[in-house]
């Protein structure tokens, strides 16, 4: 927890006063070259990066969860093998390939990146929601029905709360993957921190590569920790770990 807080403060300090970090990054920049990326503000790029990921993952999470709920309703058990087969297939698709394949269809800019992140985000969330919802013990469901809960209330009051930690776990995985994949979106002109990395690779300025890469990694670690805290809070009472 303390480490996460320190990391958050470090990221905030770097975004607010990048110039203060010049001495640290100077050795990695070419002689006399710029040390801090200067074609756009790092804070602005970070906001655009996180915004892009959030914009892609929100519909991704809603649709994946909706599909998982739909497939796990009574009478649709025959759809489960198909759902699992599609998930297994999807997970062999490399994120770079998904992004590249979106470009011919959607052109350049933020749209193909958004679509690729949306598509790639579906799978982990769907898979873990499926595991969470189908993992609710049958006696629990019977008890809920016996208590007179309608199917809708049973879903909202019993199944979703019990499945929440796993659903959040899948969303966390999707978010971390999307955050990293979004950088590649800058090769097709999406506005993300990848822009800084590409600029660094183009002129062999490793200070740029470090800024872009470590900022993205720090964001991923922060989001990882954030979802971890959420999942811990969502755990039903009694099942909380003693950490």
């Amino acid at each position: 927890m303390k480490g996460t807080l320190a990391l958050a403060l470090l990221v905030a300090a770097f975004l607010a006063f990048p110039e203060a970090f010049v001495p640290v990054l100077r050795p990695f920049a070419p002689e006399g070259g710029p040390v801090i990326y200067d074609r756009a503000s790092l804070a602005g790029l970070t906001a655009a990066h996180v915004g892009l990921v959030a914009l892609a993952l929100l519909p991704s999470a809603l649709i994946a969860l909706g599909l998982a709920i739909w497939v796990t309703r009574p009478g649709r058990a025959h759809l489960l093998p198909l759902a699992r087969a599609v998930v297994n297939f999807g997970q062999t698709l490399p994120p770079v390939a998904v992004l590249a394949l979106c470009v011919p269809v959607f052109g350049f800019g933020a749209v193909p990146t958004l679509v690729a992140l949306f598509l790639y985000g579906l799978l982990p969330i769907f898979e873990s929601s499926l595991a969470g919802l189908s993992g609710v013990p049958a006696p629990t469901l019977t008890a809920a029905t016996a208590m007179g809960l309608t199917p809708a209330r049973r879903l909202l009051q019993v199944e979703l709360p019990l499945a929440a930690p796993l659903i959040l776990e899948g969303t966390r995985l999707s978010a971390v993957i999307a955050l990293s994949t979004a950088t590649i979106g800058s090769t097709v002109a999406a506005r993300t921190l990848g822009e800084v990395i590409i600029a660094g690779l183009n002129v062999m300025n490793l200070a740029f590569v470090l800024q872009g890469g470590l900022l993205t990694a720090a964001l991923a670690l922060l989001i990882h920790a954030g979802f971890g805290a959420l999942a811990e809070a969502a755990r039903p009472p009694g099942a909380r770990s003693s950490r």
């Binding site: 990695f28 990293s180 950088t183 660094g200 690779l201 490793l206 991923a220 670690l221």
Partner: peptide
Amino acid sequence: TAIQTVPSMAMFGLMIL
């Protein structure tokens, strides 16, 4: 795990060092 969070483009770039 921390290594996994470094985006691939940056990781490839950093190995140059």
